[in-house]
Nucleic acid binder design. Structure first.
Lengths: 333, 333
DNA sequence: CTGTTAGCGCGTTCAT
DNA sequence: ATGAACGCGCTAACAG
């Protein structure tokens, strides 16, 4: 069977406590170099690795993080998972994953945090409901919010969507665009306000007056993007900024159908970069966001918190920058 | 703090062992209805939930599954994760996730299985290396392979890619296509052979001779799909079947650039369905595969295995069927 | 510098 | 039908 600490100790001719100290690299205690060598040696030949359950029971820390996401097929979250897993592995933590449907009322938090399965929680949510807050507080488990803020919660890691939208507008304005449309997210929802603000920042920077007629609510689906774009067509925009890649794609389909050429007649951009940007036709110019870093920093932050640290809150993560592809070009004259 | 079994027992005025029996619903032992009620009641008011670590240490089963994936930004795997998580939750298991880069040599399996973190492993891999096999055997932990077979491993859950490709060809042939090109995967790799076989099955069924000139290796990237398509253009296919959505998208871009209309001049299809299919222009006709079910069944199977069952191997999962969208139409005359 | 001792919270014999 | 006692594998306080 699996070798235990006892086996290592016996083989090295020492007590388990000594073996334990050596193997966990206790710094305060000094141990004779020779015995340390023997113990390490024994551990290696026995292919010993500590029983995480026993360790956890003893220390009441499972060295496991719980990550809760509302959807898996969203590049933002896959990327965040990637980053979180990287950070967790780096710190010797494991990552438990749980999926929670947007509207669900089931007690995922409870399942993970109660019973010492997870020491802390990384929570991504699309909902705005205060329910989230209540539930989380109720678990009495340290948590860090991913990709959204909640009033009163100190620890969250978000992207600077406002800056991203501004960068996009900047790019378009520099190419001479003046009539830049915006496919906005759900009003009052998920970063939508931030993006709209950034859009306006960008316009202002280039002294382009804000025209509410050029903004349409598109939500977060291709159909939503298409519908919004259809409504916008009459306004004759020369460029369109989608809040997400999905809505940008929906808009592109409508432009194609209307016989408009991208980017000759209309330029299109989307926020966030993902593999799908290279699958569209033409390939989509985007503003890349550090979604993986978001997951990584959130995990780093949570682990710091669990170790008793009092980390500084993390400022919104600035965009990685513009990824210029084929969907944007000079404004038509 | 968190309430323990002791607390529940004390509150109900019974011994911990009795409380334990009741709470775990032990069937063999009979317990007076009244005390059972009292215990359940106490547990509820104390918001008791068992310490998973202690339970695990005692029973040497963590009720946790480890899922290892080679990439997170692949819809096939996100979807499989979704299904696996669903199954795990259904059985009261947790799902540990780990990412293993295709070429990596680091001991992810070891990390998860040693130390009783995970009772069993769900392993998805893109590599063909026999290394995988060796490493897995070395862990001495039950495992189920996801989306690939390995000679000698009884338990794996795969999709019937061959049937999927045949369905696609069927659809195209029924619309009068005779010159159907195939963008193949890496030769000898990841289901590529199966898909090619299915492509040939479909052709044969419609008495269309197989023309090797109409098959090009595209790999699994948009660029690969584009390159393969460029090479195929001279063959004047009227339809193209991509092994994946990504390669299909790459091909579509080339067709657009060549001034060919989809589907008027050339129809395009891809295998696997995913949200991105609705983001392409025109929206892509696909053969939907039960990727989520694959994850779910794999997890069901593994849990059965862990419970001492000797489950039957699972046959390749048949496709969910054709999703007809805008990228396919009658063959040009 | 190292060994002894005492649990962490739970499930499981064995008694009664 | 219920309780007493033990130990899963490990860490940590206290001796020496």
């Amino acid at each position: 069977m699996r070798s235990r600490l006892t086996d290592v100790a016996r083989m090295a001719g020492v007590d388990v406590s000594t073996a334990s100290r050596v193997l966990r690299g206790e710094s305060t205690q000094r141990i004779r170099e020779e015995t340390r060598k023997r113990i390490l040696e024994s551990a290696r030949t026995l292919d010993y690795s500590p029983n995480a359950l026993a360790q956890g029971l003893r220390t009441s820390r499972s060295r496991t993080l719980g990550l809760i996401v509302p959807q898996l097929d969203n590049p933002v979250f896959s990327s965040a998972i990637y980053g979180a897993e990287k950070s967790a592995a780096k710190h010797g933590y494991s990552l438990l994953i749980a999926h929670r449907e947007p509207g669900a009322t089931d007690a995922v938090y409870h399942r993970l945090s109660h019973g010492n399965r997870a020491d802390g929680l990384l929570v991504a949510s699309l909902d705005d409901d205060g329910l989230l807050r209540e539930e989380l507080e109720a678990t009495r488990t340290p948590f860090v919010l991913l990709n959204r803020q909640l009033p009163g919660s100190r620890y969250c890691v978000v992207l600077d969507s406002r800056a991203a939208a501004a960068i996009a507008v900047d790019h378009l304005a520099q190419m001479g665009h003046k009539r830049i449309a915006h496919l906005a997210g759900r009003p009052g929802g998920f970063n939508a306000g931030e993006r709209l603000a950034g859009y306006r920042d960008g316009l202002k920077r280039h002294a382009i007056p804000f025209d509410p007629q050029l903004v349409a609510v598109a939500g977060y689906t291709a159909e939503g993007g298409a519908a919004a774009m259809r409504g916008l067509l009459a306004q004759k925009p020369t460029a369109v900024l989608g809040a997400t890649l999905v809505t940008a794609a929906g808009a592109m389909a409508v432009l194609h159908e209307a016989g408009l050429q991208i980017p000759r007649d209309v330029s299109v951009m989307g926020l966030h970069d993902a593999p799908v940007a290279t699958m569209l036709y033409p390939t989509l110019t985007t503003v890349k966001m550090p979604t993986d870093v978001m997951g990584e920093l959130a995990s780093d932050l949570l682990i710091d918190l669990l170790n008793g640290g009092a980390p500084q809150p993390i400022a919104p993560l600035p965009p990685d920058g513009l990824i210029a592809r084929a969907s944007t070009g000079p404004a038509p004259r």
